[in-house]
Design a protein around this nucleic acid. Structure first.
Lengths: 330, 330
DNA sequence: CAAATTATATCAAACGTTTGCGAAACTATT
DNA sequence: AATAGTTTCGCAAACGTTTGATATAATTTG
């Protein structure tokens, strides 16, 4: 069975295609009686406008592209969720692709986006350093780009991200408020700029506001490593009384080790992390965290995208602020 | 800056549009020298074929639609992840929409898919009962549909799902093997067919293979409820020694309560669940689980989709088998 | 009642491709 | 040198819309 088209409707009704087209969109030129007939037939024949023809003609796809490192990720999927909600409201459809942190995939995805003439793309850089030429070319072609989370330094782009430094600073503040004396602070892959930012912020705050507190800095790019770290550090004579985790992944490793060692939270050690909240709420007591909401970021990104699409350029970097969420772990 | 088109290339090269088109796709009619020139110019002018024009002309969108209840979900996002991987390999793009379990959203998403003339759709029914007319109509229009996870009874459709009954049976088997005597079995929303299936399978197995074992059946549609259940049941004189959780959500509630009550796993109680593995691995000891892999399901769904697109109808219901994954909790 | 206005509907071009068919321009064959 | 066969390319229609310009009929106006 072939799809219903304007032409088909027109033939059935002995009208011209343009009349049918206008009737369906309530154009004032068309008589009410005609409109009624057209609508009725369209309904009964299950007419659905061909998006491709429309897009070809109008040069407006109403499709937005999203590139994330991975869909299967607590942070990014809440980002996507938010963007999808907004898109629906604004009558845009979404095309989602994952880069798996491979620049090669990222490029390929962008190509698909361009070939589909997306109206804009939300991009999260894959972690490895790369050149931004593609993005510049897309800018030249006037395809709006909103970078999120992992954003380039280049300030010719529109960017939204979490207030990474603030997160770490807030966490440090809380640690001090709760009387942490010997802190183990675990950060992620030191190659990532986000790790550097958070570590610097944490360190800066600690050094200036609480110079007498003893802080051990460590890296762990996986839960496994984070767990081992706890095991190792906890057997030392100089034990920590507080542990700060930079990410959910680290927290997971830490918590496993803490459960294995049967350490009591918060009596024996306090725990604080940066997270969107899902993982911290899996434990008893709930882990205290500084919230970084992918959802909020998504909403913000969408606003920026709309501004970009409508009003031309908005080359700014916006951050969504962090806030502390109380738990029972500190 | 306007996009490069075949016409533009043709003008520059003093060739016809059709020649340029054929040159770019290595058509044997075109001289090698011409091809070289065309390719060179296309390259330097960043020519990207317009997907809409192609799709309009060829009537083949190479886009697949996916409807999930929620993207932000451990199970579905691994499903999506798998489908996306395969799609990329087969040169399809993905359009992902979430229904939020609202039939209304589901219908709206389907409309968008139809208007975009998707080559096929992966659909997971929103939980509330609804009529399948839309899907039948799409079938008539020869849009392949592969239902996954929550599938309709109607066997005119292609379906893939987890072996729900098997999961529960395997879990029951293991509980008996590990000498559970007093089992607390917690199932999800009793309105959902998946809950019924799993409960029936569990119950049937228990009654026939281990009639002397005492099983308490309970429902909990949220982690919270599950947690309360544990608190209530554990204060009784007749305590349980094993708890079976039907889903991750239930497990989360259960584990929180267990941690709060400071119950030792597996010494005081054994725990087993049905899961894709992420949550069970968050704890120490790791929770034993019967694996339901969204990833595997995605792979299977894609195979079915390809079969459907190429070879016409494949009206079968396939299931991906469950397997037990060892942990330290039983 | 002729002229001007309004209401309604049609024409035709354009968006960027793909593709069957035909047209030159060569080359090879007798 | 005429014919047949190849190689290389162009013409033009079609995919399903949208939209400015235009045409026709109906209505109003002075």
């Amino acid at each position: 069975m072939t799809n219903t088209t304007l032409k088909l409707l027109a033939q059935q009704l002995q009208l011209s295609i343009s009349t049918v087209s206008r009737a369906l969109k309530d154009h004032p030129d068309i008589a009410a009686s005609t409109k009624a007939k057209v609508h009725a037939l369209a309904q009964s024949m299950d007419y659905e406008p061909n998006a491709y023809a429309i897009q070809l003609r109008t040069q407006n796809s109403r499709i937005l592209g999203v590139i994330v490192p991975a869909i299967s990720n607590l942070f990014y999927d809440s980002f996507i969720s938010a963007v999808e909600e907004e898109s629906r409201k604004h009558n845009y459809a979404l095309m989602i692709m994952q880069s798996s942190n491979q620049p090669e995939n990222e490029l390929n995805n962008l190509k698909i986006f361009r070939q589909n003439r997306v109206s804009g793309v939300f991009a999260c850089l894959s972690s490895h350093p790369q050149n931004l030429e593609v993005y510049h070319k897309m800018n030249e072609r006037e395809i709006p780009i909103v970078f999120f989370d992992i954003v380039p330094k280049d300030n010719r782009f529109t960017k939204v991200r979490m207030a990474d430094e603030r997160c770490a600073t807030i966490a440090a503040e809380k640690v001090i408020q709760r009387n942490g004396k010997k802190v183990l602070a675990i950060f992620g892959d030191p190659g990532l700029s986000i790790s550097q930012k958070r570590k610097n912020a944490f360190q800066t705050f600690m050094e200036s506001y609480a110079p007498k507190i003893h802080v051990t800095y460590a890296n762990a790019s996986s839960s496994l490593e984070a767990g081992e770290l706890i095991h190792k550090q906890y057997s030392k004579t100089q034990k920590f009384d507080t542990v700060f985790c930079m990410t959910d992944e680290i927290l997971i490793g830490v918590m496993k080790a803490i459960q294995a060692l049967n350490i009591k939270i918060p009596n024996e050690v306090g725990v604080i992390t940066i997270s969107n909240g899902f993982i911290p709420n899996l434990y008893y007591p709930k882990i205290c965290y500084v919230e970084t909401s992918g959802y909020e970021l998504g909403k913000l990104a969408f606003v920026q995208m709309m501004a970009n699409i409508k009003g031309g350029k908005t080359q700014t970097e916006l951050t969504v602020d962090a806030k502390f969420v109380e738990g029972g772990s500190l």
